[in-house]
Amino acid sequence: MKIPSQQLLDDLKVITEQNIQFAENLLNQTDEKLNFRLSEKSWSILECIEHLNRYGKFYIPEISKRIENSNTKSTEIFSSGILGNYFANSMLPKENLNTMKTFKSMNPIHSKLDKNVLNEFIAQQKQMIYLLNEAENTDLNKVKTSISITNLIKLKIGDTFRFVIYHNLRHIEQAKRNH
């Protein structure tokens, strides 16, 4: 996938802004509604958001550190890497969402959760908007980030942004089904 770098960053900012708006609207709901799950094995709205917070705790500092330590200049076109493109596209919500196994440490099912989960998510997403703005002066092709499952694989930061934000979108769509 090739896309103008600025267009990619702008598209990802729009998704992130919409996710912030959704979470802010959830602050008006009761804890009971936010903790309701459709079945014993499905996640509640807050569990979906908590799952994203757990990933955010890894990716936001990782992306921030890589941008801070980069001395690259922005590039006109972002070209997705093979693995990065695969990971990012696998996160996009589909009509019949294929369920994926998550790591135990990232699975919030049956956690005691309240609206602090939403406030943390909103704060993380505002940090993500800040990082997307900072990335406008970074080469999205050359700067690489680690991924949460292994230090052996590094992705282009453009693909990391896509992966994280598409993953957020996927679970926001999951939360909406409980809404």
Rank of each mutant, 00 (worst) to 15 (best):
K144I: 06
E76V: 04
K57I: 05
S44G: 07
N25A: 13
V14N: 11
T145N: 15
N53V: 02
L140Y: 10
L83H: 07
N28S: 15
P108D: 09
E136R: 13
E24A: 04
N116A: 11
E62G: 02
N25I: 05
Y130M: 09
G158L: 11
N98S: 10
H171L: 12
S74D: 14
D139E: 08
L169M: 12
M128H: 02
A23P: 00
H179N: 12
T72S: 15
L46Q: 05
H51S: 06
Q21E: 13
D10E: 14
A88V: 08
F78A: 00
H167V: 09
N96M: 05
H179V: 15
S5H: 03
Q29T: 02
N107Q: 12
I20K: 07
R162F: 05
I49A: 04
L118T: 05
I149N: 03
N141R: 08
L9C: 09
Y59G: 07
I165Q: 08
L113W: 05
I122T: 03
V14Q: 14
K65S: 11
E47F: 08
P108E: 08
K126W: 04
D11I: 01
F78V: 01
R162S: 15
K104C: 00
K65C: 02
Y130F: 13
S90A: 14
D139H: 11
M128V: 14
H51R: 04
K126C: 02
I15C: 04
T102W: 01
E173W: 10
N141S: 10
W43I: 02
N89E: 15
A123E: 13
E50S: 05
N19S: 15
L152T: 04
Y55K: 03
N151V: 06
G56W: 00
L8E: 00
F121M: 02
N116S: 14
I20D: 13
L97A: 10
E24Q: 15
S74N: 11
Q21C: 01
S5P: 03
T75G: 12
Y59M: 07
E76Y: 06
K57F: 08
L8N: 00
T75I: 06
V14F: 14
I49Q: 06
K115L: 10
F36W: 09
S90E: 11
L152G: 11
S64C: 01
I82P: 09
I157D: 13
K176D: 12
N151A: 14
Y130I: 07
E62Y: 04
V143F: 04
S70L: 05
F161W: 11
E17M: 12
S44V: 07
N53I: 06
I157F: 15
S64A: 11
K65G: 00
L27R: 09
K94D: 03
F36C: 01
N133G: 05
N107C: 05
S44A: 10
Q125A: 07
M91R: 08
L12T: 06
I20R: 12
F163H: 07
Q21H: 08
